[in-house]
């Protein structure tokens, strides 16, 4: 959503990039030869592992985008419960907190199993750049993306790399 805060810059951006894969792009498979991938969110389940490895193999520049990808952030709070807590997490979310049809979604091959712990992206694959923030503010994204478009390694400093 913070991305949308880029307002008119989005139009400039659209002229310079082709969005080949995203939750709002109708592509089932992550394509080959991608220049830049902004990864949002931490690695939480087995599908994510497969996905990030695929992304890494097919992408030149991988960016951890936002605190969840960089630190695990709020999504990783469940790790404090200790290893092997997946079942409890699901129990709490889908049974205890449910108002309708309490049941844990389970379907092999459809619902990916949760990992023992949530980890930031760079613990699994090599990450080229980090864009912190929850969310990263629009000016911060703009500065970062502009530098990338200029072919530079983005250099952010000061509050532009503030966590949170």
């Amino acid at each position: 959503m913070s991305f949308l805060d880029l307002d008119e810059f989005l139009i400039d951006l659209a002229a310079q990039v082709e969005v080949v894969y995203s939750p709002v792009v109708d592509a089932k498979e992550y394509p080959e030869n991608v220049d830049v991938c902004l990864i949002e969110g931490a690695i939480c389940n087995e599908d994510h592992i497969e996905m990030v490895h695929k992304i890494r193999a097919r992408t030149k520049i991988v960016v951890s985008f936002g605190d969840c990808a960089v630190t695990g952030n709020v999504t990783a709070i469940r790790n404090q419960l200790g290893l092997g807590n997946q079942e409890n997490v699901l129990q709490r979310a889908y049974v205890e907190a449910a108002q309708l049809n309490p049941c844990i979604p389970k379907l092999d091959g459809i619902v990916p199993p949760l990992l023992e712990r949530v980890i930031p992206v760079h613990e699994m694959i090599h990450v080229d750049h980090f864009l912190t923030g929850c969310p990263p503010s629009a000016p911060r994204i703009k500065s970062f993306v502009s530098q990338l478009l200029e072919g530079k390694a983005p250099q952010l400093t000061g509050t532009d790399i503030k966590f949170g």
Binding site: S64, H122, F130, T132, L156, T157, D160, I161, K162
Partner: peptide, 10 residues
């Protein structure tokens, strides 16, 4: 952290 350039934790 940001003053010292920590943008992720290794």
């Amino acid at each position: 952290a940001y003053e010292q350039g920590v943008d992720h934790v290794r």
